[in-house]
Amino acid sequence: MPVSLTVTDLSLRKGYNLLISKLNVSISSGEAVSLTGENGVGKTTLLRTLAGFQTPESGAICATENDVQIESDIWWSQHVHFLGHHDALSPARTVAQELEFQASYLGGDVTKVAPLKLQTLMDLETRYLSAGQKRRLSCARLLMARRVLWLLDEPMAPLDVAHRELLAGLMQAHLAQGGMIIAAVHDALPFATRGLRLERPAREVAGV
């Protein structure tokens, strides 16, 4: 079942700053988009808007499955994973507790996270984890509940070489199963992706 996401004439504003003006992009099953651009250009804001956390200034985000539009509430609560640069982990809870909670909250299967090799960390409270270990733990939810669109904000940044390869492998497997990925990155991902470079809108467009 091919799923696609179409963004039409999307403009985003943060405070008084116009970050993105009239963005048009469309992505469908099996595709990955690397979002690049200088710091502060609006990569994270775009990802958060696509996750439904922020309302766009104007424009539309429309998801379709077999050319039938998916209602936005259902889209966000069943088809989208968002991994920000904060890892969404409570420092005083153990890895096992976090995994169990996420699995039952998102309706996933905790046994599917085996490829991330978290077994040795299970009894540790998440505040004792290194940045890379935290990132691996937050990637667990991508695997435990299958959702078609992954929105990733700098997914590779804290990971070591071996785990970058591991995550890249998981991302490719997700694409092969008909998934979609939109990732904000500074270093290119180690597989073929479509590039989308964000630029600052010109001053006259921004209406300054």
């Binding site: 968002f82 920000g84 982990l89 409570s90 909250y105 998102l106």
Partner: peptide, 15 residues
């Protein structure tokens, strides 16, 4: 707590 730890990002994409 959950605001600072960004746990709301996870909670908002749940059911």
């Amino acid at each position: 707590r959950d605001y600072d730890d960004a746990v709301f990002d996870l909670l908002r994409l749940g059911p």
